[in-house]
Write a protein that binds this DNA or RNA. Structure first.
Lengths: 422, 422
DNA sequence: CTGAAAGCGCTAACAA
DNA sequence: TTGTTAGCGCTTTCAG
């Protein structure tokens, strides 16, 4: 590692020119076998590893694709517990049996709190070195599946990684937000052949800027108006299908009183999903004539404004419970987090779900598979999002002049116990 | 995107030299504000993005860290369902209610089968376009948390990503195995300032080769003998602590008949864990005198050879059930997969766990949190593994001549229902 | 089949 | 404060 050997070193060592060294590495068949072997030997004994930078510069191709994610600002993973690292032999026993206190609930502040708790707890363990059976749930929870948004990224990342690998590209991942974002984005953009950017991560002008240099595909952002390639999921159709089901359009239309827990007003996802919800309601209302004949009235809709957070959902749920109005028959939420919050509130007040009221989400996060009751939702194909993104870039790379691509990935409605069976 | 502008273009446009352009980007304070503004304007209007390759070449620093993972050979994720992509409005309703058929069990072949099933199923949906309620569990399962090994990587990846981000590095991820491995590794090694490699991924000589160019840290590999930095987890202490608990050393030593389901013989993890197990057994046996006084005999140990797979565990479990010998009081498995397989076998034969026999695993994979009964295990700090790896590289970067680092991360014993409470 | 030489785009002395 | 000028290590014609 003193001074990395270069083509020149290898060439000298093997008694050939640098061009030959390069050939041996790039097109081995263009070199006489003996020469090749000699060069390869030199490579070996010198410990030569070609410089990717030089290669990229000379060859104007990197063999690398980029994925840009939102920064991890709020994440605040607990630090590795250095006290324990110092003495790894102290193994805590953690009681993770059922019946332990429910995991904390908020999203934003929760993480920080949990992290703090974990640290405190770990220190307690380290210092006291007693009470090995201490309930360390706080340590347990936050280390793994705490922040669902992350799981989302994880899946996209994984999909992109797999597909890149298949296509013979390496994947460069970067994250940024705030001021670090612009720097990072430029940095990464200068080192890759194409870039996938998760929506809401980067302002439009920056994207436009970067896309003048390399192909950029935008993930999960329905906003139109740019010339970039887009890969998204069908929020509208998904929510429409789910709402259709909830309203029981093909089941007799028995549900006529429903609440929509919305997301933040500036979210394209919220807009699309809300539209899908409205479409389903309109359709159901149009069917009112028929429904009325069966003894049902028009669909009554109320909207609670949420913010995609579990806490926001909980507030909405509390509001519904506290309201003088009777509970609706169903609460359709703009995302899973909100829905879980609503469930929290209902559970806290002993509201029977789905007996008294149905609750649905959107996203398909893991937590919804393990809530009580398990959450009916629409699952997004996160993995495919990453994979198709990579494909799109590769396609674009081969045909830079093709018109902008707009891929919409299908979603699936997942029926689980938070909705009554039919 | 026609022809990416360079420093020269910007310099010309702004009426300055290329050095000034470079300065504006690297050390803005060294440039007179007016000049800076002028250059920045040119950058903007030209759509200039500096070439990372050229920068890396000239500056001999990439600002990128590498993470090398095992290839995804066996993974075989189902392809995105292109039929449905073409018509995203067809939204399938999937019945994911409890009581659906148990997920398939094997690890290796399972994935492929499930994928095939998913495809078949999806096509069926597409063609028939009826029977929206078709049980599509096959589609459901494999898309998400199918392969636990992946979750493992995901967490490491995530940890590395977060930490890299904090340190101002981008992270380059590559995977390889077989022949693609060498190429990929060299490729990535030439583009990063330091590299973390997951154990068992790369043969030692290749690692040695690469490490002559950049710092390399090896993850989760206890093999000694090289001069590289290592970050691992304390397999031995973890298994010892767990086995201590199982044998009830501090609970009266009531368990005297135990089976160890081993992993593959060439795995360092298996070796370390096995050692921990043996240590605990020896300790318990040493305590026999005391135990005997309480009416207990020496510890009886049997070993079943597994292979870290669920199927291997199942076979071991079947063997135990079929054996003329009585069931042991506890089955300690070298990893979670094996333990889940043992559970499968026991459940299939109506063996009461933990009533009749206790079962434990090692790793802390998600599936163990949701098995029946939930699995007592040792959790590895995957996330920290990634994070500490990055820290280690950064440390090494600042002091290349420091002696090789050996970090061992602590583990935690997670007590869950597959072991009797005490 | 092999070698010579011209860049690729940028950074970092060193001058001015 | 700004400009000039070497490289950084490799790929790639174009000759030989």
């Amino acid at each position: 590692m003193t001074k990395a050997p270069t083509v020149y070193d290898v060439a000298a060592h093997a008694g050939v020119s640098i061009a030959t060294v390069s050939r041996v590495l790039r097109r081995p068949d263009d070199v006489r076998p003996e020469t090749r072997a000699r060069v390869l030997d030199s490579v070996r004994s010198l410990g030569y590893v070609p410089s990717g930078a030089a290669r990229g510069l000379a060859g104007r191709r990197h063999g690398v694709l980029g994925l840009f994610l939102p920064g991890h600002d709020g994440i605040d993973l607990p630090e590795p517990d250095w006290e324990r690292v110092a003495d790894a032999s102290r193994i805590p026993l953690i009681d993770d049996r059922e019946g332990r206190p429910a995991p904390p609930a908020t999203t934003g502040t929760e993480t920080a709190n949990a992290a703090a708790a974990a640290t405190a707890n770990a220190n307690a363990n380290a210092n006291a070195n007693a009470n090995a059976n201490a309930n360390a749930t706080a340590t347990d929870a936050p280390r793994s599946a705490s922040n669902p948004a992350n799981l989302y990224f994880d899946e996209v990342l994984r999909g992109a990684e797999v597909e890149s690998w298949r296509r013979g590209f390496a994947l460069m991942v970067a994250a940024g937000r705030g001021s670090s974002r612009e720097v990072m984005l430029n940095d990464i953009a200068g080192r890759v052949d194409g870039l996938a950017v998760l929506a809401q991560t980067v302002p439009d002008d920056l994207l436009a800027h970067v896309s003048r240099r390399i192909p950029v595909v935008v993930l999960a952002d329905s906003r139109p108006g740019d010339e970039l390639d887009h890969v998204g999921v069908d929020n509208t159709a998904g929510m429409r299908a789910l709402t259709d089901f909830v309203l029981g359009r093909d089941g007799g239309g028995r549900v006529r009183d429903v609440v929509y827990v919305a997301g933040p007003g500036d979210s394209p996802d919220e807009a699309d999903r809300h539209r899908g919800f409205d479409e389903a309601v309109v359709a159901a209302t149009a069917a009112t004539a028929a429904a009325t004949r069966q003894g049902h009235g028009p669909v009554r809709v109320r909207v609670e404004r949420g913010d995609f957070s579990r806490e926001g959902g909980r507030r909405a749920g509390e509001a519904l419970v506290a309201s003088p109005d009777p509970l609706p028959q169903a609460v359709v939420c703009a995302n899973d987090q909100s829905a879980l919050g609503v469930l929290d509130a209902f559970v806290a007040h002993g509201v029977d779900v789905p007996g008294r009221v149905a609750v649905t989400g959107f996203d398909g996060i893991e937590a919804g598979r393990f809530s009580t009751p398990r959450l009916t939702t629409v699952r997004q194909p996160m993995n495919d999002l990453g994979r198709v993104a990579v494909r799109t870039i590769v396609t674009r790379l081969t045909d830079p002049s093709a018109p902008p691509l707009r891929v919409t990935l299908p979603v699936e409605v997942l029926l689980r116990e938070s909705c009554p069976a039919r």
